[in-house]
Simulated scan of single mutants.
Amino acid sequence: MLEKQLEHLTSKVNNLDLSHELAAGGLKALVHHSGEHADVSQSIHASSHTIHGAPWLHNLLPGIEKFASQYHVGNFVVVRGSKEQIFEAMPIYARLGMHLLFYGHEQVKLLHSERVEHLLKEQSIKEGKLYDDPESVKSIPSFVETYSLSTEELLEPDITKYKTFNEFFSRKLKPDARPVDHADDPLAICSAADCRLTVYQTVDLAKEFWIKGREFTIPNLLGIPPTHEKAQLFDGSSLAIFRLAPSDYHRFHSPIDAEIGEIVDIPGQYYTVNPQAVNEPGFDVFTANKRSVLFMTHTATNLPVAFVAIGALLVASIGWTNGGEKGKTVKKGEELGYFAYGGSTVVAMFPRGVIEFDADLVGNSVVPVETLMKVGNSLGRTPTKV
């Protein structure tokens, strides 16, 4: 049990009593500090649990200590195969990002504020550049310690061999580190990422239990008009939402046996993809953010599957590896691409009837609570007759 209250964000209650200017200054300071100092737990990875270790922030964000003493800020996730739920703290930078979007002005005006959007984009690009700098390697040891990362499964386990923080962040694993469930079954479908997962058999269910943004539609997610052929193909589709936390392995993999098709890049914002933002009515994270859409052809059904990689606050880039080779055939579990710095999300869309999700994942998602998953874990399967 948590010894203090779990904060539930709403746009009507401002628990973090900061002005817009102070919140913006705090976000800028966190990003700047990450380039100057090695300990990530005292900058962008400070949380309500560790804010006492970042006294330099207390003057910048008056009341942050009181806020941290009153609330646990984050989300519960469930461990697959059990009923155990684990609390995961939200980094302060993500909480500040939501504060800038939800509070300080009338919400509708603020959500469309060019000033806020410019700030989030500016700081996201800056963080990416800082972590592409060779000097950023100094932050790798504290990142490993902060998130208790195991280096044994890494293709290069010696953290001193990485040339930048981003190179470590998008680290590769040993070939046998993520075995694929039912690898030889062409109808089996697997997790695309190490992630926190929710699944919904229809878009309507996803909007009922998880995605509260009023503008979330398949055409909006794909960046196409409602009359487009692909909008018709994906009408009534099933969704798997893979949310990657900063601590996760940040390469994403194919959930299906497939042929690689075209990629469509869609410019957009850099909002946080934290569940409390996704669950906020009127706030459209997935359809507003920068994203890159890979269209694949499912080998077993010859139907299209859309694989949408979504950028987020402090995420510098989306990179494609095998997913960038049009015409290439991939097996489920094979790498498609990666995210550079930050936590982010992949949304996989399956046309109606292509997947029946595993019952335990469906049950958790309607609670709703995310399920901890690894690349290759069973996601579901294609019915024998589609």
Rank of each mutant, 00 (worst) to 15 (best):
Gln201Thr: 05
Ile125Met: 05
Met349Ser: 09
Leu96Ala: 02
Val264Asp: 06
Thr329Leu: 15
Lys207Glu: 04
Gly319Pro: 09
Phe168Tyr: 07
Ala306Ser: 07
Glu356Phe: 12
His99Thr: 08
Ser170Leu: 13
Glu208Ala: 13
Pro179Gly: 13
Leu244Ala: 05
Thr272Glu: 02
Ser113Gln: 05
Ala306Glu: 02
His250Trp: 00
Arg178Glu: 11
Val305Ser: 09
Glu325Lys: 15
Gly268Trp: 05
Ser47Glu: 04
Asn302Lys: 13
Ser365Lys: 07
Leu119Asp: 03
Ser148Trp: 03
Pro281Cys: 09
Ser48Cys: 11
Glu114His: 13
Ile51Leu: 06
Asp17Leu: 10
Lys328Met: 07
Pro225Ile: 03
Phe234Ala: 04
Glu21Asn: 13
Arg95Pro: 09
Pro91Leu: 00
Phe209Met: 08
Glu88Thr: 04
Ser254Tyr: 05
Val366His: 10
Asn279His: 08
Gln5Lys: 12
Ala46Thr: 10
Phe165Cys: 09
Ser254Asp: 00
Gly261Glu: 01
Val180Trp: 03
Glu65Trp: 12
Glu356His: 12
Tyr103Trp: 14
Asp265Asn: 11
Phe350Trp: 10
Lys126Gln: 05
Lys172His: 15
Glu135Lys: 10
Asn75Leu: 14
Thr198Arg: 15
Thr160Lys: 10
Gly333Arg: 05
Gly63Met: 02
Glu127Gln: 08
Glu325Asp: 13
Asn377Trp: 15
Ala68Lys: 02
Glu117Ser: 07
Glu88Asn: 14
Val264Trp: 01
Gln123Gly: 00
Ala94Met: 04
Ile140Gln: 04
Asn59Gln: 13
Val366Ala: 12
Ser254Val: 10
Asn364Arg: 11
Glu106Leu: 14
Phe357His: 07
His72Thr: 06
Thr160Asp: 10
Leu197Gln: 05
Ile44Ser: 05
Val366Asp: 12
Asn59Lys: 13
Val369Thr: 11
Gly35Arg: 03
Phe143Asn: 03
